[in-house]
């Protein structure tokens, strides 16, 4: 094999994959398990091929992919001033599109698809729930209005979500933290 083929392609950032499994005997944070960190295109695929597809996870489980050093929780210093673009998948989308949307989201992140806005990206979370799966891209600074909107538009375009039918909302983590019961946090931005 030529040495050229042995050189892996470095990513701009190191990324950590996390797995959350809801075990009521344990604290929320203990249920978040760090799986692996990678920083090349080849290692991304090696990990992706090694794990269960999102659609095959049990209800109550999450996968998260965050830049190395950022924990997949609101309280992390890199997250606490930010929020998330959230997609509540319809039943039909959960059945047909979950795995392709999740892979597309991962490719957007590791490939730095959001141009100069990529620095504001913290990570992504896919949540498997009986009521409907959720997919989110987390960003770090709520004040970065233009950047958040550009990320939202680009993300929606990459997933191929129809513009008029599907409205995607951006929620501040600070709002989500103080919400009681099942009321969703108010959208700060929509695309």
């Amino acid at each position: 094999i030529s040495p050229e083929l042995l050189i892996k392609h470095p990513l701009q950032n190191s990324w950590t994959l996390w797995f959350y499994k809801n075990d009521k005997q344990k604290q929320w944070e203990e249920n978040q398990r760090e799986i692996s960190t990678f920083d090349t295109v080849e290692d991304f695929w090696a990990l992706y091929n090694h794990i269960e597809a999102a659609s095959r996870l049990q209800s109550g489980c999450d996968y998260s992919l965050f830049k190395a050093g950022i924990k997949p929780m609101w309280e992390d210093t890199k997250n606490k001033s930010g929020g998330r673009w959230l997609i509540n998948l319809t039943r039909q989308q959960c059945i047909n599109d979950l795995d392709s949307y999740w892979l597309e989201t991962l490719l957007c992140l590791v490939g730095e698809a959001f141009d100069e806005q990529s620095d504001d990206i913290c990570g992504t979370v896919v949540q498997i729930r009986t009521k409907g799966d959720k997919l989110a891209v987390w960003t770090g600074d709520l004040r970065n209005n233009d950047g958040i909107l550009k990320i939202g538009m680009k993300y929606k375009e990459r997933l191929g979500l129809p513009n008029k039918v599907c409205v995607m909302g951006y929620q501040a983590h600070a709002d989500s933290m103080v919400i009681c019961g099942s009321m969703p946090a108010q959208n700060r931005f929509t695309v």
Binding site: Q12, V41, N49, V110
Partner: peptide, 20 residues
């Protein structure tokens, strides 16, 4: 510069893990 990769570039490195 930033190491940004478009979709088609990333996808070409997708491979199936060998059976061990």
């Amino acid at each position: 510069g930033k190491k940004a990769y478009d979709r088609s570039f990333l996808v070409q490195f997708q491979w199936e893990p060998p059976c061990v």
